[in-house]
C-alpha cells in the first residue's frame, strides 16, 4: 500500500508566469540551491497558488534558467512558475518581493505567452570591477582580444576540464572607453577599472571567473582585491551591435 503515491487532487497549471529577479549586495553569496529554498518558501508566504508535481514528494512547478554563480551579483536572473489560478503579475511581483529577504529582489513578473524561454537566453552582459591600475587592465584586455584562443582550466562536476574561453567573449571594454567623458581612474587611491564583457552562452559555459583566468593568463593582471562581478543583462543577442535584448519582449508583444 505504501509503494504507490497517494492520490491527490492535483490542480492543473492555469497560467505560467516569468519572474526577473536580482541578487544584490551580501546575498550575492547565496548559491543556486540557497535561492531555490528561499524562493519556494517565499512563494508559500506570498500565498501564490502553486501547481505541484505528482509523486511521493510533490514539488512546486518552477523552472530555473542559467543562474549566476555563487558570489556573483545579478540584475537579470529568471525563473518560470506554474500556478493553478490566474494571478495578477504586478501583485505577484509586490508580494513575492516582500516575502523574499532583502537582496533577493523581484524586478518584474510577466505572464508567459510565448514558448522556449530558456533558448532565448543567448548571452550575458557582465560587469567586472577590477582593482588594478588602468594600464595593467588595458594591456590584459588588448592581449586577450588579440588572441583567437585562450585555454582555461576549471573543476567541473565531471572533473578537471580544459576549454577555450576566448571564442565566447564577444565584447570587452572598460567603462572609460564606453563612457563619453570618463573620470580619470588614476586619481583614485586604489585604482579600479570597470569592465563590461558580453559572453555568449555555450557549452561548457564560460563564466566570469573563466574570463578573469583568461585575462590573467594572457596579460600580467593581478587584481589587488577580489573582483566584484554583476550580471547586468541576459537575453537574445543582436550579433551586429553585440547588444542584449530583453527576453520578455516576445511576451509583451502579445499582451
Amino acid at each position: 500500500m505504501a509503494n504507490k503515491p497517494p492520490d491527490r487532487n492535483l490542480a492543473p497549471i492555469a497560467q505560467k508566469l516569468r519572474v526577473r529577479y536580482a541578487k544584490r549586495g551580501r546575498l550575492r553569496f547565496s548559491s543556486h540551491r540557497d535561492f531555490q529554498r528561499a524562493l519556494e518558501r517565499a512563494l508559500r508566504r506570498a500565498g501564490v497558488p502553486m501547481a505541484y508535481s505528482a509523486g511521493f514528494s510533490p514539488h512546486p512547478k518552477i523552472s530555473y534558467s542559467n543562474s549566476a554563480p555563487t558570489g556573483v551579483a545579478s540584475e537579470a536572473e529568471y525563473v518560470e512558475i506554474g500556478v493553478t489560478q490566474y494571478c495578477d503579475p504586478t501583485k505577484l511581483r509586490d508580494e513575492l518581493d516582500a516575502a523574499l529577504p532583502e537582496g533577493l529582489d523581484v524586478i518584474e513578473v510577466i505572464e508567459a505567452t510565448s514558448r522556449d524561454f530558456s533558448a532565448r537566453l543567448e548571452a550575458s552582459l557582465w560587469e567586472m570591477e577590477i582593482s588594478a591600475p588602468a594600464q595593467e587592465v588595458a594591456r590584459a584586455v588588448e592581449a586577450l582580444l588579440g588572441t583567437s584562443e585562450v585555454l582555461v582550466e576549471r573543476m567541473t562536476k565531471s572533473g578537471k576540464r580544459v576549454f577555450d574561453a576566448r571564442s565566447a567573449i564577444l565584447l570587452m571594454e572598460s567603462e572609460s572607453q564606453s563612457a563619453v567623458s570618463a573620470p580619470a581612474h588614476t586619481q583614485m587611491p586604489l585604482e579600479c577599472v570597470i569592465l563590461h564583457v558580453v559572453v555568449r552562452h555555450i557549452v561548457p559555459s564560460v563564466r566570469p571567473d573563466d574570463v578573469l583566468t583568461a585575462l590573467k593568463q594572457v596579460g600580467t593582471l593581478e587584481p589587488r582585491k577580489p573582483v566584484r562581478v554583476t550580471r547586468l543583462a541576459q537575453g537574445p543577442l543582436t550579433e551586429v551591435s553585440i547588444s542584449i535584448e530583453d527576453p520578455f519582449d516576445p511576451d509583451r508583444v502579445l499582451v
Binding site: 546575498l27 548559491s31 558570489g71 532583502e102 577580489p226
Partner: peptide, 19 residues
C-alpha cells in the same frame, strides 16, 4: 570580511540577512 568571502567555502553562512 567581504574581501575574504570569495576565498572560502559556503560564504552565505557568514552574511546574515535571513528572513
Amino acid at each position: 570580511l567581504e574581501a575574504l568571502l570569495p576565498l572560502i567555502s559556503k560564504p552565505i553562512q557568514y552574511v546574515g540577512g535571513e528572513l
